[in-house]
Amino acid sequence: MIIVNGKEFPWEEGMTVRRLLELKKYIYPRITVKINGQIVNEEEYDTKVINDGDNVQCIHLMAGG
């Protein structure tokens, strides 16, 4: 289990940032991802692996109409 935006989310072996965004259906183009407080650059989304128990933040920087 990992924490995503403060809530529990099932973890899977080898889960990358990209995979997490797909599972969460986060399609917004301006998302800042942090794992345990460290920003992950967009170029690393396909390779950066999330470990069981990690605290992940997917911050959508959107303040609307």
Binding site: N5, K7, Y28, Q57, C58, I59, H60, M62, A63, G64
Partner: peptide, 11 residues
Amino acid sequence: WLIFMDMVNNQ
């Protein structure tokens, strides 16, 4: 307009 800050980001 706080929907994403609140509902999605849980900030």
